[in-house]
Write a protein that binds this DNA or RNA. Structure first.
Length: 317
DNA sequence: CCAAAAGAGACAGCAACCAT
DNA sequence: ATGGTTGCTGTCTCTTTTGG
């Protein structure tokens, strides 16, 4: 059998046809751990925040450094991850069967309390991110990582039984007859199966718009603007939610190149909330500590697991 | 008052999609 | 095919705020 290397994984990330099912995501992550175990890249603990670590790849990959990984969420070992992914898949199956948040009453409370859903999603996506960080062409990697995260979330939402697809809609511009804006939406989802296929250029009242990005950064503005524009130009309230993986990046901190920076602009977030509109849900797989501490932020920002178990069902009820 | 941290903005190159 | 538009994200740099 051929030995699997990091460049094989790079190949997979570049392959646009390689991620049609959740199992494809399991497979690449699982393989990533095998490669890590074999090639043993240097593991570095961030001096500025000790729960974040980096891997540094071998000389043959240019000593490239991965993105920061939150060790509270990242599994790091093959067996732990394998078991956790199986529990994750089984839980999605339960959600699909019951079609509401009631599963939490059926002996699943321990699993829910463990917050393992966030860990599985985080580990899968960050392992893909780490593979991307070994690319020669970093911009190609960024593009693919963003696409793969969007696709991953789409598959999860589909897996619990909803319709969910990216969509480009045309919004008519009032006062300018014949003119319309073309507007790309990351995800549109609904429990109302039949309706979606028929109205692909518009948003049906039962549908929710989801914006999916790995970090909010300066693009948080766009999410608020989406809600504002869609609601204003379509003449009715359009529910818009946002799903982010995290909001940290590596940064030089004094002498060290292994520092951590937050990329979440909390004051802009609150400013947009007041001046434009409140979003219908903001979810992080790896929330920043301030989001859980600050009362204003805590009202609006929750973790991804809560979206999947509770809010998704309330929103689309 | 100064150093460090946080905030904000700019940028890179690629990809997807669409109209022509 | 071609060109225009929109979108992707990690890092660098510059500015502002913080805290001792």
């Amino acid at each position: 059998m051929k030995k699997i290397t990091l460049s094989d994984l790079q190949e997979s990330v570049r392959d646009n046809s390689a991620f049609g099912t959740l199992n494809d995501y399991f497979a690449i992550c699982n393989t990533f751990f095998q490669v890590i175990q074999k090639e043993k890249p240097t593991r570095i603990v961030s001096p500025s925040q000790s729960n974040y670590i980096f891997y540094q790849y071998a000389p043959s990959y240019g000593h490239k450094i991965t993105r920061p990984l939150n060790s509270h969420l990242f599994f790091e070992t093959v067996t732990n991850f394998k078991d956790a992914f199986e529990r994750f898949a089984a839980f999605l199956n339960d959600l699909k069967k019951h079609q509401d948040s009631a599963v939490r009453r059926k002996g699943k409370q321990n699993y829910i309390d463990s917050k393992e859903i966030n860990k599985v999603v985080y580990t899968v996506q960050q392992s893909i991110g780490c593979i991307g960080d070994s690319f020669e062409n970093s911009n190609q990697s960024r593009k693919r990582i963003g696409q793969l995260f969007e696709n991953f979330i789409k598959l999860i939402i589909q897996e619990v039984g909803l319709d969910c697809e990216p969509r480009t809609i045309n919004i008519p511009i009032p006062d300018y007859p014949g003119y319309e804006m073309s507007y790309e939406l990351d995800l549109v989802f609904s429990r109302n199966k039949a309706i979606i296929a028929s109205e692909t250029k518009f948003i049906h009242p039962s549908e929710i718009v989801g914006s999916v990005k790995t970090t909010s950064k300066d693009r948080i503005d766009k999410v608020f603007l989406d809600k504002y524009l869609l609601t204003k130009l379509l003449g009715r309230n359009i529910p818009v939610i946002a799903i982010f993986l995290h909001d940290v990046q590596r940064a030089k901190r004094g002498e060290s190149i292994f520092g951590i920076n937050s990329t979440f602009k909390s004051n802009h977030f609150l400013g947009y909330t007041v001046a434009l509109n409140k979003l219908d849900g903001v979810y992080y797989v790896d929330p920043r500590p301030e989001m859980l501490v600050n009362d204003r932020l805590r009202e609006q920002i929750h973790d991804f697991q809560q979206f999947l178990i509770q809010d998704l069902w309330k929103l689309s009820a």
